[in-house]
């Protein structure tokens, strides 16, 4: 279902994530394959569809009792399956990074913003102090934080949600990674702030020519933001489609996701209920 990209940054084949529970193994991700180049790919699905788990599996962050298996998982030609922890750490943060959902939980509450950003730089080759400081300040400027000097000294609880998420983006991009996984980066934010954070993210990805995997439950948001959309349902990719052709989506689940949003100027009838069919599990 996926055409192989010759210049793919990330190549995933038959990725599955399994959790051993008391009631037997549960597959959160069930054999998905896709490639990501220096482009923006959206992964959409309802909660529990395995989209977040996919992002974490790529970074090798699925903890026991979860198990990850794939016939191919390469980043820039490096096989990331069974990569020793040391080499995995060199990729993590430095070359592939991730922005997480809620800055209230994803920033360490007892560490200053400055230390948390500096840490991202410091674990990859200990640059000198003034360089760390300069790069941190530049990065905060890039995410359009005013008064970055003061923010460096602030603790996460002293920041608003929108600022927290900009700090998160700054912390994860300061090492200039080539691929960014954004896991619901705006879902925890106020609607008014969402668009600004998205614009900053979009701008950075475009300017730096990074690859982006944008994970969201919001199909419309993803389609305006990404080049390509993967629709996930119960651990499988049920449809892959170019964002501007979304209206041509064939799979009933994708159509359902599109139709269950109200349209301004549309009719006032009941919104259709999302159809879920057992058969799609094995599509």
């Amino acid at each position: 279902m996926t055409q192989a990209h010759g210049d793919a940054l990330l190549s995933v084949r038959d990725l599955s994530v399994t959790f051993d529970t008391r009631r037997g193994p549960f597959q959160a991700v069930r054999g998905i394959s896709f490639d990501v180049g220096r482009e923006r790919v959206g992964i959409v699905g309802e909660s529990g569809s395995g989209k977040s788990m996919t992002g974490r599996a790529i970074l090798g962050l699925v903890r026991a009792p979860g198990r990850v298996a794939a016939s191919c998982l390469t980043f820039d030609g490096i096989d990331m399956r069974n990569l020793p922890e040391r080499q995995m750490r060199r990729i993590r943060g430095q070359r592939v990074s991730m922005v997480m959902q809620d800055p209230r939980y994803s920033l360490n509450p007892v560490m200053t913003v400055g230390r948390q950003i500096a840490e991202a730089l410091r674990v990859h080759g200990r640059p000198p102090r003034d360089e760390i400081r300069r790069r941190s300040l530049d990065m905060l400027n890039e995410v359009q934080i005013r008064d970055p000097e003061r923010v460096l000294k602030a603790y996460p609880h002293e920041l608003s949600g929108g600022m927290g998420q900009r700090v998160m983006i700054a912390m994860m991009l300061v090492t200039e990674p080539e691929l960014l996984i954004a896991d619901e980066p705006t879902s925890a934010l106020d609607v008014t702030v969402q668009l600004e954070v998205l614009r900053i993210l979009d701008d950075l990805v475009r300017r730096r020519g990074m690859g982006l995997i944008f994970i969201s439950h919001d199909l419309r948001l993803v389609s305006t933001f990404c080049d390509r959309v993967l629709v996930m349902y119960r651990g499988r990719i049920v449809e892959e489609i170019e964002a501007r052709r979304l209206h041509e989506a064939k799979h009933p689940y994708t159509q359902g996701l599109l139709n269950c949003l109200p349209r301004i100027g549309g009719g006032h009838g009941d919104l259709p209920t999302l159809q879920r069919q057992q058969a799609w599990k094995d599509a």
Partner: peptide, 22 residues
């Protein structure tokens, strides 16, 4: 089990530092 622990791992922070510092 908190998210900031995952965030530290994403940054490439060594595990001993994740545990003893974060």
């Amino acid at each position: 089990g908190q998210e900031y622990i995952t965030a530290a791992r994403v940054k490439g922070v060594p595990e001993w530092r994740v545990i003893w510092v974060h």
